[in-house]
Design a protein around this nucleic acid. Structure first.
Lengths: 204, 204, 204, 204
DNA sequence: CATGAATGAGCATTCATTCAT
DNA sequence: TATGAATGAATGCTCATTCAT
């Protein structure tokens, strides 16, 4: 029946609306300022309505993050799929990673810059989903580095150690710029590019 | 005069007490779990008393951070003062920076990993103080790199760009480990050392 | 016609299903923890469906209680029907009454230990039904006592007064044990038996 | 200082006011309908103010009950202190116990007729205070019965068993009348007196 | 007949802050 | 200087119920 379909579509639309509203608040005011009431108010629904679509606040935020990671992976895969030389692919992918953080500061901060104690009263299984996603993204980095080694662009070595080093450095660039703690950075585009070159040089 | 002095001293002592208590909670439970009442209870004063010494919660936390930076600078200066070769000094100083973050995760996260919007309703002058301190620490990095160049350990180049790159990377190592977002890092000591070597190699 | 009958039967069956599910929750978790959603979830229907079969929560609970009383009456009648001597019948019936309470604490508490104000916004006719049932059970007690008098086991007297006294005492034993307010009772079996003997002795 | 005293007095008065308001709601609407907001509204204070005087809802309700029991004990002691013959003292005390229940139905129901699961998420130590009080009252019953035995008014026997039996019966009279489940009791005064006589006869 | 969507009122509790004293 | 009393706004969440379909 058309009725059934329309209902289902409307339900999806409201879920989307909630997600978007939450994301906006999340981005503008940070995790600790996302409240069910604020979300509800901003979409002009009753707070309890949100609970028809998300088990609880964590479920909601988790869903946002999972979506964010899916996008990150999509972006990375799109670059990986271009069949460029390994080193070039790696560089572009890392650049894209940084860009993703700059495009979605709230997601990035939430997932990578939020200390554990903020989530102290949260059921840990809720996070395993997020971590699973994060590991998927990291796996792409590992693979890329392995390719560079295989291709002779990097000396053979401990893939895990190098991957983690590189991720930490790239994460530093991303989070440093995202958080923007008031530091007078030089031109960001240039800073990113030069930092990336140095990071890759350090690994080679 | 004696009366006046004693009063002033007592006032300072209470301020100190508040700072210490707040710092302890801050470190143990993180910024979002520092409550004025908790602080007051722990020093057995009334919550309102705190307001006689600090304008508000942020002023209090800001003061803590400024002290934290002072310690960071003390640690760095202690290494710089040893008169070791420039590269060795640089490496040790960066290692000390990371250690400082690991030793004081709450400070580190608060100062370097907390996005601006958390402080949205905060008087901006409070922050300029923190930034002034942060710039002091960063200046030490700049100087160290300049020394390496002068000494021929690093090719001449844009000191500012290299300094910022290095800081971002070292910050990545520090914040990545401090925040501990559930990632299965390899042995941390090793990861830190190898990362540092790669970072320095990338800059050379 | 067959259609009509089947529908009617199906309707009854769902009503039955709701009642059973509600009863289970009622018994396991008590009146205040029975929620329409819990019931609906447990039978895999929508909450709103329940309202097609019961006016509201109280109507539902009332129906449960009426069924409970029917069981109590069945139990009592089974004993009465054994044709034992009047006093023995009376004693066994009172024992059975207590057992009923212990077996169905939620029913018992709900019907006999719940003060009126809990039901403040409830249509009074719902209760008259329960009371009608309760009076049916009580009538069996009256009859039993009358039999004892007729048989010379008890001195003639005001049947109503004695019946009410006995019920109050037996109710005390039942509710005291059912509610279990933390009191360190002696062995319950013994306490019940000895209490019953004393109650009957007091009436004789 | 007068200031200090006045403040202290005012604090006590507000505590009293909260207690009274809560008690009124408690009596009129039952435990499950006592809410911090309702109490606050009824005395025209902010809900949070209540927390300056009571740790939480349980602490508040517990305080009410403890006060109630203190009154029960006062009443019992006043009778015991009259130096009447043991049996007469016992009868009057039991009569007073019943009267206490009738005078304070909410307390009585809360303490003696509320099943455990209502308090399922409550720290059990909070209740130990109430139980301690309740045991104090019960001890008076034990002592009274012992006196009757010593005085030859009752045959020697298991004091504990008899005490518990008597309490259960008297509790039945009290709770039966207090809860008032719609039963058409005969004249209550008479019912109480005759029941008491039968209870005592049954124990003798 | 049954449902899915939505609501509005309600809950206990915590917090930073103010202010008269 | 320090305090105690009080507040108002906020938090996540649950519930019985309604109603258009």
């Amino acid at each position: 029946m058309g009725t059934h379909e329309r209902r289902s579509r409307e339900k999806d639309e409201l879920r989307r609306k909630i997600l978007d509203a939450a994301t906006r608040i999340f981005i503008e005011e940070g995790y600790e300022n996302v409240s069910m009431r604020k979300i509800a108010d901003s979409i002009e629904y009753a707070p309890s309505t949100i609970y028809l679509h998300f088990r609880d606040k964590v479920d909601l935020v988790t869903s946002i993050c999972i979506e964010a990671f899916a996008e990150l992976d999509r972006r990375l895969d799109s670059i990986i799929g271009q069949g460029l030389p390994p080193m070039e692919t790696l560089r572009l992918a890392l650049r894209e990673y940084i860009q993703f953080g700059l495009d979605h500061p709230a997601y990035y901060v939430f997932v990578f810059c939020t200390p554990q104690y903020v989530f102290k009263d949260i059921d840990p299984t809720s996070f395993s989903n997020i971590h699973t996603c994060a590991m998927g993204s990291f796996q792409r980095l590992r693979t890329g580095i392995q390719s560079c080694m295989t291709n002779g662009d990097m000396p053979a070595g401990d893939v895990e150690s190098i991957s983690q080093s590189i991720w930490l450095c790239v994460h530093g660039v991303t989070s440093g710029l995202v958080v923007d703690c008031g530091f007078p950075f030089i031109d960001r585009e240039r800073l990113i590019d030069e930092s990336l070159l140095r990071i890759l040089k350090g690994a080679a």
